[in-house]
């Protein structure tokens, strides 16, 4: 009797021991499993912290190459409205500064912050059968308004590498179409397929530290204090970079000099 009881007890214990769930402890959840998957957008960037600035000029050395006039005979309206327009690839001011050069920060800004795009849209106008402005910069998700100020058919055909291509036809004078680019991207062209000479260049950024040298050849960008990599980009002469550190309240000077490359 005793031995039988002992046997039964041993068997029961065995079964229970075998069934007892051990093991499986070497596994663990991946990082960030609890966050629920939403991409953190980070705290918003406060423009008031941009107490410093980087400023300078884009200089041009040597003689500016001659820009030939554009043949606009394909469209009688353009022949009239855009008479005398020259190509805009290289435009140098009287004091030897290069116009229409993009200047922007590549690194050094806080990438953990969320930079809201400006509410005001960028306007790309078509007047006299050319794009105005010829070079501009914008932020991702910022609206861009294409306006046709000419009384002829234009189309705006943007050629980004990463964003969706845009090709919008505007037949009526005064028409405006609004769109935006959702991904930050380096410089790309915008062309008109009807008038092949028309072109414009833009770049899309995920931060507000960008500008162009415009008509004057000078630029200035307000930034929070820190060390930055500054890049200048010109449609013909390409890219130049420089590094600068700026403290609060100060203005750091950063100028670039381009010249026509020797043949």
């Amino acid at each position: 009797m005793n031995s039988q009881r002992a046997l039964g007890l041993a068997l029961a214990l065995t079964l229970a021991a075998a069934g007892c769930g051990g093991g499986g402890d070497e596994f663990s959840l991946p990082e960030g499993a609890g966050s629920g998957g939403a991409a953190p957008t980070g705290p918003a960037y406060d423009p008031a912290t941009a107490t410093a600035s980087i400023a300078g000029s884009i200089l041009f050395e040597g003689d500016a190459p001659e820009m030939p006039p554009i043949q606009m005979s394909a469209d009688p309206y353009c022949l009239d409205a855009g008479a005398g327009t020259r190509e805009e690839a290289v435009m140098v001011t009287d004091d030897a500064k290069l116009r229409n050069t993009m200047v922007f920060i590549r690194s050094g800004h806080d990438t953990g912050l969320f930079y809201a795009p400006p509410a005001e849209p960028v306007v790309l106008d078509q007047e006299g059968c050319r794009y105005i402005p010829h070079v501009f910069t914008m932020m991702m998700n910022q609206d861009i308004t294409f306006r046709n100020s000419d009384n002829t058919l234009h189309n705006i055909h943007a050629f980004p590498m990463v964003n969706m291509q845009i090709n919008v036809g505007q037949a009526i004078q005064g028409m405006e179409t609004t769109d935006s680019f959702t991904i930050a991207e380096g410089p790309f062209a915008i062309r008109c397929d009807v008038h092949r000479w028309m072109n414009s260049f833009t770049a899309v950024f995920d931060h507000p530290f960008h500008t162009t040298s415009g008509d004057t050849g000078d630029y200035a960008i307000n930034v929070p204090p820190g060390a930055y990599e500054v890049v200048a980009w010109h449609e013909r002469y390409g890219e130049m970079t420089g590094s600068v550190t700026v403290a609060a309240g100060e203005t750091a000077e950063m100028s670039f000099t381009y010249s026509e490359p020797a043949e």
Partner: peptide, 25 residues
């Protein structure tokens, strides 16, 4: 016991444990 203790049980227990943790989160 040896016949019973297969390695897939260990994985299933681990998965249950992780699922519980995840569900708790």
């Amino acid at each position: 016991v040896d016949d019973y203790n297969r390695e897939w049980r260990r994985y299933q227990r681990g998965f249950t444990r992780l699922s519980v943790l995840q569900t708790e989160l």
